[in-house]
Amino acid sequence: MQYFNDLVLIFDSTVRLAVPLILACLAGLYSERSGIVDIGLEGKLLGAAFAAAAMAAVSGSPWLGLLAGIGVALCMSAIHGIASINLKGDQTISGVALNFLAAGLTTFLGQSWFHRGGFTPQLSADQRFNPITLPFAEQVKDVPIIGEIYWELISGHNILTYVAFIAVPVTAFVLFKTRFGLRLRAVGENPKALDTAGMSVGWLRYQALIITAVLVGIGGTYLSIAQSAGFNNNMSAGRGYIALAALIFAKWKPWPALLVCLLFGFLDAMQFRLQGIKFPVIGEVPVQAIQALPYILTIILLAGFIGRAVAPKASGIPYTKER
């Protein structure tokens, strides 16, 4: 029973840690399916996290924080869109520029607004998104196994977590069952096919970027005012990049993306658990080595295990009408 409890707890923290990855990964999915590489996910996560925390601290409302987070992500997406759709610039470079911009601005503004070395003020419970207890969770929590799973694993998360998990089937539906999804997939594969059919390639890509911004904005908000109680420097800590790696590993498909993000979340959860534990034979493993686990796995997976990941064909190429 002890093992079972441990397992449920590990899975519970897997879910918590996977949420920002899932949101960022789905965000990247929309943008890359439309043919726009979004290295800037990392910066958008960070920018949204900062904006959400700052707004929640000032206004006292997590919902206004969420709006601010999404708003900042939208602004950053707009910059990315203008650079890569209208001006036909290099998408990787504009994305990297956004990352630098976010890293610098959040620190600078945080310091000049709040004077706490880049941190935003500690948020109280009512300024954050709090765990929700699902119906009947109290009643069934003593039922062995099923009740415990429901209580610990399924109930008791904040609203953004549920949004992330609902976003997966919604994305799958939008992508494969709707007109918008068909066009989105087409524009990332062969934008000319859409252009000759009389549709605007640029507008479709902007639509994708807007969805990307909303999702990654929620992800950033989750980091600072749901998972934590405030913003601290560089709190996205490479999750945007991990999400992109997960996207490749999942071959740009929503359900596999969920699984991969959960896998990365699980490794992250294990990493917390494994710290300080003495292993047989090896003894205690340095914290740093354990913390590096998810990243090492990323490299191994990307290098060898996933076979050929074929990106949407037009991904990364600005669309220009030809003569």
């Binding site: 494969f176 069952k177 709707t178 007109r179 918008f180 999804g181 068909l182 066009r183 997939r185 087409a186 594969e189 062969n190 000319k192 096919a193 859409l194 252009d195 000759t196 059919a197 009389g198 549709m199 064909k313």
Partner: peptide
């Protein structure tokens, strides 16, 4: 050809001329 290579014939034919928001 202005075709999306990893789409089916059907999907290519309707692309841009879909008559409802849902594909089915």
């Amino acid at each position: 050809f202005m075709l999306v290579e990893n789409f089916s014939v059907l999907e290519n034919v309707v692309l841009g001329a879909e008559d409802s928001p849902l594909l089915a």
